[in-house]
Simulated assay, not measured.
Amino acid sequence: MQGEHTHEASAAVYAAEAASVPRARRFAVETARKRGWEDTGALELLVSELVTNSANAASAFAVQVFSPYETSDGRFLRFEVADDNPQGPVLAPMTPWSESGRGIPLVDLLSAEWHWQERGSGKFVCVTLREERTDERPRRGPRALLPASVA
């Protein structure tokens, strides 16, 4: 998937402060929804984790959200978080008592693909999400007893 798809993108730049985290998260979710991406739960969580890392380690950061695209493997959304700190994220082992370090394991778990790369005097983290189709989710409740053609 990496590098195969280039689509329209929207970006926003933020000062590295705690107040920027909810603004960046809102920007990413609203941008994705405007482009037809409905499954925003993982996007919201992963943007929050990555921009929190940037807010703690850099003096500024940017969020870029690309248009969704489809392949034979499904529908995907790519986003990037860039900052002016060249130190890359580390996927480190955690314990239940770890006070930090959960962001990158969550990125690794919830994304279809991710990587980071140096850019200028900083870096960017690129994440690709695979859309979970609502028609693929199991039905629950009384409607689950009905045939699919009726429900």
Rank of each mutant, 00 (worst) to 15 (best):
M1I: 15
M1R: 09
M1N: 11
Q2Y: 10
Q2T: 12
Q2H: 12
E4K: 14
H5G: 01
T6Y: 09
E8F: 13
S10N: 13
A12K: 13
A16E: 14
E17I: 03
E17R: 15
A19D: 15
S20Q: 11
V21S: 06
P22R: 04
P22W: 08
P22A: 06
R23I: 10
A24T: 03
A24S: 14
R25G: 04
R25C: 11
A28K: 04
V29R: 10
E30L: 11
A32W: 05
A32S: 05
A32P: 11
R33K: 15
R33H: 09
K34A: 15
K34Q: 14
R35H: 12
G36H: 10
W37R: 03
G41V: 12
L43R: 08
L43W: 02
E44P: 05
L45H: 07
L46P: 00
V47C: 08
V47T: 12
S48K: 13
S48F: 12
E49P: 02
E49M: 09
E49A: 09
L50D: 01
T52L: 12
S54H: 00
N56R: 15
A57P: 07
A60T: 11
F66A: 09
P68L: 02
Y69A: 03
E70T: 13
G74W: 06
R75E: 09
F76W: 02
L77R: 11
L77W: 12
R78S: 04
R78P: 00
F79C: 01
E80L: 14
V81H: 03
V81A: 05
A82K: 03
D84G: 06
D84A: 06
D84V: 08
N85K: 11
N85S: 13
Q87P: 02
Q87A: 11
G88D: 07
G88R: 09
V90G: 00
V90R: 12
V90N: 05
V90E: 14
A92Q: 14
A92R: 13
P93T: 04
P96W: 04
W97V: 09
S98P: 05
E99Q: 13
S100T: 15
G103E: 04
G103C: 10
I104Y: 01
I104F: 05
L106F: 10
D108N: 15
L109F: 11
L109R: 13
L110Y: 10
A112N: 03
E113C: 05
W114Q: 00
H115A: 13
H115Y: 14
H115S: 14
W116A: 10
G120P: 02
G120Y: 02
G120A: 07
G120L: 04
S121E: 11
G122Q: 02
G122C: 08
C126G: 09
V127I: 08
V127H: 00
T128H: 01
R130F: 00
E131L: 01
E131G: 03
E132P: 04
E132V: 07
R133Q: 10
R133W: 05
P138W: 07
P138Y: 01
R139G: 08
R140H: 13
G141D: 07
P142R: 06
L145R: 15
A148W: 11
S149T: 12
S149A: 14
A151M: 09
A151P: 07
